[in-house]
């Protein structure tokens, strides 16, 4: 079995299994905990829980006015690499083919050149995020190995994907194998580390919004 066959086969299969199991385990173990029931009387104009959660989710996409000066660039950079990752993962023709093979779903792809450009921007944006984490005394203090490892497993597939796309540094098959192995590492780590925030954000933003909106707090 070649490295590419291993990466395409067992490595990705095991990683996908670990991903699915991990996400289910993390979410179910959370959702199975007792849920607080708020017995305080909501303000008469409070929206439904669903409307409050949705509104609160959207509100936190962008800093409130008084915090824009301090948080603007950090928020922008965060949006750049999150949106960039989404474009790369779901826009490249080869990725869509891979997803079609797994789930049977497909959609039109973006031009390869555009996805490559987005990949470079995404990688640059991730590098800025890492630099900030290393340079800022606040971020250095609160960062853990989990944060740095999660950064690494996120950046690696982007970097190896760019190399494979550009045929740089090694044979294409070898580069593709390393790309697939880096994706496997990302999937396997995803639910067990900080990357799980991609799922948890719906709970945390939603629950705080429900708490605040029933009090009549617009924040």
């Amino acid at each position: 079995m070649s490295l590419l066959e291993f990466a395409r086969g067992p490595a990705l299969e095991i990683a996908l299994g670990a991903f699915a199991f991990g996400v289910a385990w993390r979410l179910l173990s959370l959702l199975a905990l007792p849920w607080s029931r708020d017995r305080s009387v909501a303000r008469p104009a409070a929206p439904s829980a669903l409307a409050a959660a949705a509104g609160g989710f959207v509100r936190r996409m962008w800093p409130a006015r008084p915090f824009r000066r301090s948080d603007l660039w950090v928020t922008l950079n965060g949006h750049v690499y999150h949106i960039g990752l989404a474009i790369v993962v779901f826009g490249l023709a080869q990725h869509i083919q891979f997803i079609k093979g797994l789930f049977g779903l497909q959609w039109p792809n973006l031009p390869t050149g555009l996805v490559s450009l987005v990949s470079v921007i995404t990688l640059a944006s991730l590098t800025v995020a890492l630099a900030r984490r290393v340079v800022s005394p606040v971020l250095r203090l609160i960062s853990t190995a989990n944060d740095y490892f999660s950064w690494l497993v996120t950046a690696l597939p982007v970097a190896t994907g760019l190399l494979a796309q550009s045929h740089l540094g090694a044979r294409y098959e070898t580069l593709l194998a390393w790309h697939l192995l880096s994706v496997a590492l990302l999937l396997a780590w995803f639910p067990y580390g900080k990357l799980m925030h991609a799922f948890l954000v719906f709970l945390t933003r939603g629950e705080t919004a429900i708490l605040y909106r029933r009090r009549g707090v617009q924040s």
Partner: peptide
């Protein structure tokens, strides 16, 4: 006293440090 929302809050922090500038003590 752990309820779902408290644990979600504890597990979801991405250590972005945005909260520092908002805190009057910091």
């Amino acid at each position: 006293r752990t309820e779902e929302h408290l644990v979600s809050y504890l597990e979801a922090c991405v250590h972005c440090g945005t909260c520092a500038e908002a805190c009057h003590f910091y």
